[in-house]
Design a binder for these strands. Sequence first.
DNA 1: TAAATTACCTAGGCGTCCTAGGCAAATGTA
DNA 2: TACATTTGCCTAGGACGCCTAGGTAATTTA
Lengths: 189, 189
Amino acid sequence: MARVGLNTERLTAAGAELADEVGFDKVTVSALARRFGVKDASLYSHVKNSQDLKTRIALLALEELADRAAAALAGRAGKDALTAFANAYRGYAHEHPGRYAAAQLDLDPETARASAAVRHSQMTRAILRGYHLAEPDETDAVRLLGSTFHGYVALERSGGFQHTPRTAEDSWARILDALDALLRAWPAA
Amino acid sequence: MARVGLNTERLTAAGAELADEVGFDKVTVSALARRFGVKDASLYSHVKNSQDLKTRIALLALEELADRAAAALAGRAGKDALTAFANAYRGYAHEHPGRYAAAQLDLDPETARASAAVRHSQMTRAILRGYHLAEPDETDAVRLLGSTFHGYVALERSGGFQHTPRTAEDSWARILDALDALLRAWPAA
DNA sequence: TAAATTACCTAGGCGTCCTAGGCAAATGTA
DNA sequence: TACATTTGCCTAGGACGCCTAGGTAATTTA
């Protein structure tokens, strides 16, 4: 009985790959076991249950996404930073659709607070510092950017932009222009 | 053997209610059968399979959402229309979280084209007529609005706004102000 | 009232999730 | 090297969801 060398980390990584290949919703304990050539019961010494596995994949994706965004942001400010950040986000979603879907998993508040999700909002705030918004405007702008980026990627992935000749690429660029203009001229309350 | 009087429509409606109560992902053929006091096999004369059931719930939700948005839009223009439309959207998501989740289901292109999703983008375009944008700016603006509304509701529902004292309500109002300002001063390419 | 239809049933196969308990491979210790 | 401990993967098996085939009884139609 040769041992395959399973552990939590390898299972999480393989789960993330599986998600990108077949979709996050099709990541199951059984499918993952099959991929390692072991019985599904064998995975339960490494992950608590199916939910635990999915949560770990989600946390991995959030980390990767935050790392990528941080790298994109380094040394940039203003519109440059905004664009780099937004493209990092969208690029990750395109390259890793399954992981991106995983990152949308509803985490319980405690897990969320300890996750890389925190870094995401911090980075958004860092970008906004270049636009000199006072509170609560900055918070509102953080929410606007988060919503728009996430919403755009979600609609794009579900094929919502395909019945018009205008490419998703071109709209994206113009929307970033528009958001930059909006942040520079944020209306007074 | 008393008959309950199942049919496709009743199953869809009950499925939508179930979704609002326990979450769209927990809507199963078995759970729905249980709710009617029949065996799960009995549902298969009315819906083709589990996917078919979910698609029907999604289409129902899209219709309801479009109806509500259309009612909100009636007789309004400009910022008034923008706000009414956005609030109809967000209000529906709050009142019917399960149905709203259903409306996000990935439909195959053919089904999507025949669905009320088409009315949604038509209504967004109707709102934008008040802002006099030329193409392709109007298309870009349609995508911006769709993304932002959807993204905001998604982040709000997943608890993304809870670690700041600023209420989701207040940010929402200011974001609508900002979008209105942006549409009135859409930057030139 | 007989025939046709149909609403719901039972039986049963398959897949996924998960627990309990066992054996053998790897690792630590004398 | 020999034994003890740990642990990685196993088998067995239960619960539940999805779905098909074929039957029976309630309803509708002629």
